[in-house]
């Protein structure tokens, strides 16, 4: 039957009335269900998959038993200490913390990068060491952000060290709102 129809069609009898009807047969297919199916699958993929592929950030921590000798290597002049407090607060001081706390400064995650870079520019590379001291109210994000800043500023030597009571007290005073140590400046 199919051959019967196609033979006169390809034969060139285009103008014949009977043939014309056959040639004009609608070849359109209703695509609507296919669109439905397509979008159904899209929705499925949107909900069951994740876009962001997680990345691995390398972290090596020192052996605690060898800590004492290594600690002494850090020159006070090349040290830059970053303290992390609650609610993304960042504090820092250069060198050693003065007894009156006058070099203890308050900062934030945006501004700290410039401070680190400034310190890096003013310090011989072998002396520069950044010490990160998170207190118990800082969170994991703060620590990783700070480690990330080390990558961004290409700091070779950095360490995560436990915070001392004196430093934590200074943070508490600043966060408590009563007389910030750097307020006089």
């Amino acid at each position: 039957m199919g051959a019967d129809v196609s033979a006169p069609d390809s034969g060139g009898g285009k103008k014949g009335p009977g043939v014309k009807k056959q040639a004009r047969k609608d070849t359109k297919v209703d695509m609507t269900p296919m669109v439905d199916l397509g979008f159904l699958l899209i929705t499925f993929f949107v909900f069951t998959t994740t876009m962001s592929t997680p990345k691995a950030f390398k972290l090596n921590v020192p052996d605690d038993s060898a800590k004492d000798e290594e600690k002494n290597e850090a020159k006070a002049s090349g040290a830059f200490t970053v303290l992390l407090g609650k609610q993304d607060h960042v504090y820092y001081y250069e060198g050693q913390l003065l007894p009156d706390g006058s070099n203890f400064k308050s900062s934030n995650f945006k501004a700290i990068r410039n401070e680190i870079l400034k310190k890096k520019a003013n310090t011989p590379e072998k002396d520069l060491v950044v010490i990160i001291k998170p207190n118990e109210e800082s969170n994991y994000k703060n620590v990783v952000d700070m480690l990330d800043e080390m990558q961004i500023a290409v700091i070779k030597k950095y360490a995560i060290v436990d915070i001392s009571e004196g430093e934590n007290a200074l943070i508490k005073i600043t966060e408590g709102g009563s007389v910030p140590p750097s307020g006089g400046k």
């Binding site: 962001s52 997680p54 950030f57 390398k58």
Partner: peptide
């Protein structure tokens, strides 16, 4: 002493 932290890019 060696870790990989999972982070997003």
């Amino acid at each position: 002493f060696s870790f990989k932290l999972i982070t997003s890019l």
